[in-house]
Design a binder for these strands. Structure first.
Length: 472
DNA sequence: ATGTTC
């Protein structure tokens, strides 16, 4: 794979047939994928062949190998020019994302509360493969209400406060969810999982603000140095996974009907303006709402623990997805075009002044939540004006070694002990799951965020360090 | 990521 270094933070993959646009990789040399075992740069070139793709196939500094599309990938297609939507451009965990809450509690108070707080969260947060959930839905009709209403419905049912919705992407729910495009199997898998963390890299973490880079913006976000925070990273569980599986299969069969060929069958896609395209987008929107309700319920469960143990509030800073396709207007050659923007392992980062931001955030831009790997820092960024890649940035550290490799390197028990020695309390669900998330299997999130800022994708606002980790 | 290979 030939990479042309345009700047120290931006590399180009020149267009060659059948690519329709070039590839652009935001990275520094040390962050580029290891070509021996990671085919993600080939995946960038593959994505660049998709019908209707505009501008470039983008990759963020946390890029790594994914299903069809790279994780850390952004691709936009022109909906008026046969542009496609591809489930592989969203990923299996539809609307996986991050929610950050700020406590009215100083980190100096944490040591005396740590044991009770972490034990309380350990008991209150369902997690791991399958397992239980916070919210027992009455019936299919109530699940449909979640699929249509997301966090808005959760708050209507008493799981949260109205102010939460102001601090959620899309006010807590996307429109155009179509539960009729969600299969019975997806419904069955999702029915008992609203308010559950899942496994893998999902987590709930008690953190402290360790550094503020931009005080006015941090203040507008509701963050100050030394403050205790809570970060939730979870998605749409088995429901989103099943929806992805179902619609990839449907699109594989439908592609010949639209004369579409792709270099990798994992890039199965259909025009946005087609029956299978609309069907996927309707089901995807339903999964997006499910994921938001899931994070809303998890945050509520954590709030109850914080209230009981510490007598403190948790105010929502923001909730944003990093696995989603959205129909957005962006200027191309000076003209606004309606695009289907796929972000897979990439976080939307609206700049100051964006009309979709709530009034109190519009002057400062959207909070962009970047979780680090276990035991390392996380970052809060804000969007910047005129950014490339359709107002998107990285979503985390990015894996460098497989789960399997990680488990042969370290034991979960040792990892937990090492973290405890560094003052980080861990409440896991399985030793294996813990080992798979060893920080050494990830890039350095600080380096990833440095590149994101240097490449003009976003601007650092605050750094958060872990105090306690609840792992799936 | 995932009832971790329908």
């Amino acid at each position: 794979m030939e990479l042309v270094e345009e700047t120290p933070y931006r590399f180009r993959i020149d267009r060659r047939d059948p690519m329709r646009v070039p590839g652009v990789v935001f990275a520094a040399r040390p962050l580029l994928p290891d070509l021996g075992e990671d085919r993600s740069l080939d995946q960038v070139a593959n994505v660049a062949t998709l019908p209707g793709i505009v501008d470039a196939a983008y990759a963020m500094p946390d890029i790594h190998w994914g299903y069809g599309f790279p994780i850390g990938g952004v691709a936009a297609t022109d909906t008026a020019a046969g542009g496609v939507v591809s489930p592989g451009g969203v990923g299996f965990d539809i609307s996986c994302g991050v929610r950050l809450l700020a406590a009215d509690l100083d980190r100096a108070e944490f040591p005396r509360l740590c044991g009770a707080l972490m034990d309380g969260l350990d008991a209150a947060i369902p997690r791991g493969m399958g397992r239980g959930a916070v919210w027992q839905l009455a019936d299919r009709a109530e699940l449909d209400a979640v699929l249509r209403g997301g966090s808005r419905y959760a708050v209507e049912r008493g799981h949260g406060v109205v102010r939460d919705l102001d601090r959620c992407e899309d006010g807590g729910a996307v429109d155009d969810a179509d539960p009729t495009q969600v299969s019975e199997r997806a419904v069955q898998r999702g029915r008992g999982q609203v308010g559950s963390l899942g496994s893998g890299n999902h987590f709930l973490e008690v953190q402290a603000v360790s550094e503020v880079y931009d005080e006015p913006v941090a203040t507008a976000f509701g963050l100050r140095a030394g403050q205790v925070c809570l970060m939730v990273h979870s998605g749409s569980r088995g429901l989103g996974h099943q929806i992805c599986t179902d619609h990839v299969r449907a699109m594989e069969h439908a592609m010949p009907r639209y004369g579409i060929t792709v270099p990798d069958r994992q890039l199965a896609c259909a025009p946005v303006d087609s029956a299978p395209g609309r069907a996927y987008l309707g089901a995807m929107a339903a999964a997006a709402n499910y994921a938001r309700a899931n994070r809303q319920l998890l945050a509520e469960a954590a709030r109850r623990v914080f209230t009981r143990v510490a007598g403190c509030r948790l105010d929502l800073v923001y909730d944003v997805s990093h696995n989603l396709a959205k129909i957005e207007d962006h200027p191309l050659d000076g003209v606004d075009r309606r695009l289907c923007v796929h972000r897979k392992g990439a976080t939307r980062a609206f700049p100051p002044g964006h009309p979709d931001l709530p009034d109190d955030l519009r002057p400062v831009g959207q909070p962009v939540l970047i979780p680090g790997s276990m035991g390392t820092a996380s970052y809060v960024l804000t969007g910047v004006p005129g950014a490339p890649a359709f107002a998107s940035t990285c979503h985390g550290a990015g894996r460098t070694r497989s789960r399997r490799q990680a488990t042969t390197t370290v034991r979960g028990q040792d990892l937990r002990r090492d973290l405890a020695a560094r003052g980080i309390a861990v409440r896991g669900a399985s030793w294996r799951g813990l080992a798979e998330e060893m920080p050494g299997a990830y890039k350095d999130v600080a380096a990833v965020v440095d590149v994101a800022e240097a490449a003009g994708l976003g601007r650092r606002v605050a750094r958060l360090v872990p105090l306690g980790v609840v792992k799936g």
